[in-house]
């Protein structure tokens, strides 16, 4: 498969295409968007200036029809990464082997640059809750998740990325901060990080911590991707909704993240109240401009 869009750059960090444990270089894909049905035709027909697309893995775990047609056609023109919502890596049911087989088949079909899911649980006792449920931040959960990540990585033959989720509750029996927990999991599991900047902001508001402490508390070399998205701030609590443009405080946090981590592949998630595609392109340009400003500054140093 040939990509018209060349990989932008490489910097030294773990490489997801290697077997777990092997480290080499991190791909910098540039600036991407989520592949959503509303935009299939415009992406296919107009080849917009987007460096790469992120696809929701579960949306393409089907046998045929429109979704796979557009997936294959758009993949011909753009690099892709896969992002799942149902792995339930923090769940306590045994890993769903049928799901993993479908995931692996999709990996083989589109050859993504990497595969990610969320640091959470999504079901229990055979029931799927279809939500990203937070974990308690304690030793038991670290060991549990790390062991399951290793199983998944062995099955897929590659490292995976785990994303931090937004949360609205914290458990009485958590023993550490979210970023210490997240760092411990990825170190013990030897996996990589998809840092959702909006989720850090949302959780920092809901749990009253400093978002910069979060950024400074995670291992730089394991961060492979950023998510940006909109949220809803009702004053009492901030909800991760993906139905608004990226908010100003999140842009500022993104700037801080770039200063801390350097060039990291960045994408904007939009899942509801879908705007005209040109508005998403404008928003993506804002990410590019911030990247240029910050990374240019870094380079001059």
């Amino acid at each position: 498969m040939t990509d018209k869009h060349a990989i932008k750059n490489t910097i030294t960090t773990p490489n997801v295409n290697l077997s777990p444990g092997e480290h080499s270089t991190r791909q910098f894909l540039g600036y991407g968007l989520g592949l959503r049905t509303d935009y299939y035709d415009i992406i296919l027909n107009e080849s917009p200036d987007v460096d790469w697309f992120e696809v929701i893995s579960e949306n393409y775990m089907v046998k045929g029809g429109k979704a796979l047609y557009y997936l294959d056609a758009i993949r011909e023109n753009y690099p892709m990464v896969m992002h799942g919502v149902s792995l339930s890596i923090g769940g306590t049911d045994v890993l769903d082997i049928d799901y993993l087989k479908q995931l692996k088949a999709l990996v083989e079909r589109i050859e993504p640059c990497w595969v990610s899911d969320h640091l959470c649980w999504t079901g229990q006792g055979g029931h799927n809750l279809h939500d990203l449920m937070p974990l308690p931040y304690n030793r038991e959960a670290i060991s549990h998740v790390a062991q399951r990540v290793q199983q998944v990585q062995d099955f897929l033959g590659r490292q995976i990325l785990l994303e931090n989720v937004s949360s609205y509750i914290s458990y009485q029996h958590s023993e550490m901060s979210e970023w210490d927990f997240y760092s411990a999991v990825v170190e013990e599991a030897d996996c990589l990080m998809l840092l959702d900047i909006n989720n850090i902001y949302v959780s920092s508001k809901n749990h009253h911590f400093d978002a910069l402490d979060y950024l400074n508390g995670v291992p730089e070399q394991r961060v492979c991707q950023f998510h940006l998205a909109g949220h809803e701030d009702n004053g009492g609590i901030v909800v991760d909704t993906h139905d608004h443009p990226v908010a100003d405080p999140v842009w500022r946090l993104y700037e801080s993240a770039l200063r801390r981590f350097g060039p990291v592949s960045t994408m904007i998630e939009r899942d509801d109240r879908m705007p005209p595609f040109c508005e998403l392109l404008d928003e993506l340009q804002q990410a590019r401009d911030i990247g240029q400003m910050v990374l240019g500054t870094v380079a001059k140093r």
């Binding site: 914290s170 009485q172 029996h173």
Partner: peptide, 18 residues
């Protein structure tokens, strides 16, 4: 009983979001 309450937002209101 396993969820933290804060002054600004009680545990039951937080749970209700889920």
């Amino acid at each position: 009983t396993h969820i933290v309450s804060t002054k600004t937002f009680a545990n039951d209101a937080r749970l209700a979001i889920y």
